Amino acid sequence: MKLKKSNFLFLVIAIVFFNCSNEKAHEELVTNLDPSKYYEELNISYGEDSNQKFDLYLPANRTANTKVMILVHGGGWKSGDKADMDAIKDLLQQDFLEIAIVNINYRLANKNNNPYPMQIDDITTIVNYLNDNKAKYTISEAIGFIGTSAGAHLSLLWSYAFDTANKVNMVCSIVGPTNFTDPAYLNNTNPDVQELINLFGIDATISFLEEVSPYHQATTTSPPTILFYGGQDPLIPTTQGTDMRDKLQSLGVTHKFTLYPDAGHGWVGLELIDTWVKLKAFIEASL
């Protein structure tokens, strides 16, 4: 059975129109999120590497003024996963119903890929992605960082040296390295510590070590900073915290510092409760 030319043309137009309508409806479904409802999306890809993914948690009743907290996991720059930050994510969702949360993975370092600038570039890509999609998600450009260990180092470094638009309202370092030119690092005899430092380059120059050290990148315009360290940490000398505290004090940067004398590279019990009480108050005051 043959279709008349006019009928065939009508059929083609109808099919094209139907497909376009479906595509448009799908696009609206994807891009127009209801800000009155809670929304979460896991493993959002921001690059080709399998580790370039992040989880997004958007609170209900958000507005264009909704702040964003970015969580950065540790693992010595070469391991770890965003799942390691789920406990902090859960606390934030429990106590800060109005804050959006982004829990990130980043490319991991190895003998062929140094952590810097690779991991800083990943954070920049994520921040740019959030800014580009702020209308879709109904969020502001204002952000904060909570990082642990290597993730704390990355959080401090990005906030101090790469936040060119001054969008970081606060940054938290939990046992994060701050100064690779610290004599405690340069003269260390710990092979585990040296292995981590070597990720940034064997026999790296002092100028390069300063470039990747938040201590040397802090300025008078650095964002409010809260620091937590353990006095018995085998990887992070106490001076990494106390020197950073003193530098922020000299620059007039708002900061808080806590040293748990008997704690190592992390802690539990009353010290952990104390950390959250202090961090919660700092978020309320700064973000």
Rank of each mutant, 00 (worst) to 15 (best):
Y229V: 08
D90R: 14
F17S: 15
A165C: 10
G176P: 12
A165H: 15
F8P: 08
I174C: 04
G47L: 00
I283H: 11
D182L: 01
I44F: 00
D49P: 01
K278Q: 14
I206G: 07
K2P: 08
N190V: 01
S222A: 06
Y137V: 02
K247T: 03
A184K: 10
A14S: 15
P224Q: 06
A165K: 14
H153Y: 07
L58T: 01
S149W: 15
T258Y: 15
K89Y: 07
F96E: 14
Y116P: 12
A165L: 13
K134C: 15
H26K: 15
V168W: 03
I70M: 14
A109I: 01
K53H: 02
I13A: 09
W276T: 09
A135D: 12
N188V: 06
P117F: 04
A14I: 07
I143D: 06
S45K: 10
K280F: 07
T31M: 13
T225L: 05
H73R: 01
D203G: 05
L251M: 12
T219Y: 00
T254K: 11
E41K: 03
S222W: 10
I104R: 01
P261Q: 12
S222D: 08
A14C: 14
K89A: 15
D49M: 00
Q249E: 10
E41I: 00
S207Y: 07
V193L: 13
Y39D: 08
M118A: 12
I104G: 04
K280P: 10
T189S: 15
N179F: 01
N112S: 05
Y116I: 12
G74L: 05
T63W: 09
H216N: 11
M244I: 07
G80M: 05
K5D: 09
A87D: 15
E210Y: 05
E271V: 12
P35T: 10
S140K: 06
N166Y: 13
I123R: 11
Y160M: 09
P191A: 01
F54A: 00
I15G: 11
K111A: 12
N128Y: 08
E210S: 00
P224G: 04
W267Y: 06
G176Y: 02
M170R: 04
Y57Q: 05
H26I: 15
